[in-house]
C-alpha cells in the first residue's frame, strides 16, 4: 500500500520524479542492471568487505573480551581506554585511511574492523562477567580443566551476549563498509550509488540504495535465525518453565 502511494505521487509529479522516481521505474532499471556483471561484482565487493570486517573484529574482540572479562585486574586496567575509544566515531579516522590505504578493500575493512570491534568486545566482556558464580563453582568442584571450562561453560553461558554483539557488529560493519565505498571510493555498492548520482542516473541510484537495504535486511534475518538456533536453550527463546 505504501508503495502504491509513492508510485502515485511520483507518476503525478506530486513529488518531482527527479528526486523520487516511481518505484516501478526503479524496479525496471535495477532488473536491467542485474543483467550486467558489474552489478554482481559490486554486491560481492560489499559483502567481502562486510565479512572481512566482521570476521577480523570477531578474531580480535572475542578473545580479548574473554581475557578482559575473566580477570578483574585486566578489566580495570583496560576499562578507561575502552570506555574512551568505544564512543569515538570510527568515521573520524577516514582521513587517516585516505593517507594510509589506496581506495581498495583494505581501507574500508579497516574502518569496519575499528567500528565493529567495540560493541563485540563490550558484549563479550559483559557475558563473561555475568556467568552465574554457581556455574563456575560447579565446574570447579568437579576439577574441570581450564580449557574445558572456557569452551563448555564460559562461552555457552556468554553466548546470548555474544550473539547480540555479533548482530550489532554485523550492522556496524556493513554501514562502515558502505561509508568507505562512498567516501573513499573503494569498489562496492557504495561506489556504485555515488557513480549513479554523478551520472544523474536517479533510478539506478535508488536501485542500488534498495539493494543496500535488502542486504541489510537479509543479514539481519540471517543473524536472527542463527541466534534462534544457537540459543534454543536460553530462557528468552523457550518461553516458559523454571
Amino acid at each position: 500500500m505504501v508503495l502504491a502511494v509513492i508510485e502515485l505521487a511520483a507518476r503525478t509529479e506530486l513529488i518531482p520524479s527527479r528526486f523520487l522516481p516511481p518505484p516501478t521505474a526503479v524496479a525496471v532499471r535495477i532488473v536491467a542492471e542485474a543483467a550486467q556483471g558489474r552489478f554482481w561484482l559490486a554486491i560481492v565487493d560489499t559483502l567481502a568487505g562486510w565479512a572481512l570486517g566482521l570476521g577480523i573484529a570477531a578474531l580480535i574482540a572475542i578473545p580479548a573480551g574473554i581475557l578482559i572479562g575473566s580477570s578483574e585486574f585486566v578489566y580495570r586496567a583496560t576499562r578507561p581506554i575502552i570506555e574512551f575509544l568505544r564512543p569515538v566515531p570510527s568515521v573520524a579516522l577516514i582521513p587517516l585511511v585516505f593517507l594510509l590505504f589506496s581506495p581498495s578493500l583494505e581501507g574500508k575493512v579497516f574502518l569496519a574492523v575499528f567500528a565493529a570491534t567495540w560493541p563485540l568486545l563490550v558484549q563479550t566482556q559483559y557475558g563473561i562477567r555475568n556467568v552465574l558464580p554457581l556455574q563456575l563453582d560447579t565446574a570447579r568442584s568437579f576439577q574441570i580443566s581450564r580449557h574445558r571450562v572456557i569452551f563448555r561453560v564460559l562461552l555457552p553461558s556468554a553466548l546470548p551476549y555474544l550473539a547480540t554483539g555479533l548482530r550489532i557488529a554485523s550492522t556496524v560493519s556493513l554501514i562502515l563498509v558502505i561509508t568507505g565505498e562512498i567516501v573513499l571510493g573503494a569498489p562496492g555498492i557504495g561506489k556504485a550509488i555515488n557513480e549513479a548520482r554523478e551520472g544523474a542516473a536517479v533510478e539506478l541510484m535508488y536501485g542500488y540504495v534498495l539493494i543496500a537495504g535488502m542486504l541489510g535486511v537479509m543479514l539481519n534475518a540471517v543473524f536472527a535465525g542463527v541466534e534462534r538456533r544457537a540459543l534454543h536453550w536460553h530462557a528468552s527463546q523457550r518461553g516458559t518453565t523454571t
Binding site: R18, F19, L174, I175, I178, T179, I182, V183, I189, G190, I193, N194, A196, R197, V202, M205, Y206, Y208, V209, A212, G213, L215, G216, V217, N220
Partner: peptide, 16 residues
C-alpha cells in the same frame, strides 16, 4: 526495511 538500509547509502540521495 528503511531501518536496515545502511545510512551512508542515503547520503548521495540527500545531496540530489
Amino acid at each position: 526495511f528503511l531501518r536496515a538500509v545502511p545510512p551512508p547509502a542515503l547520503l548521495p540521495f540527500t545531496i540530489i
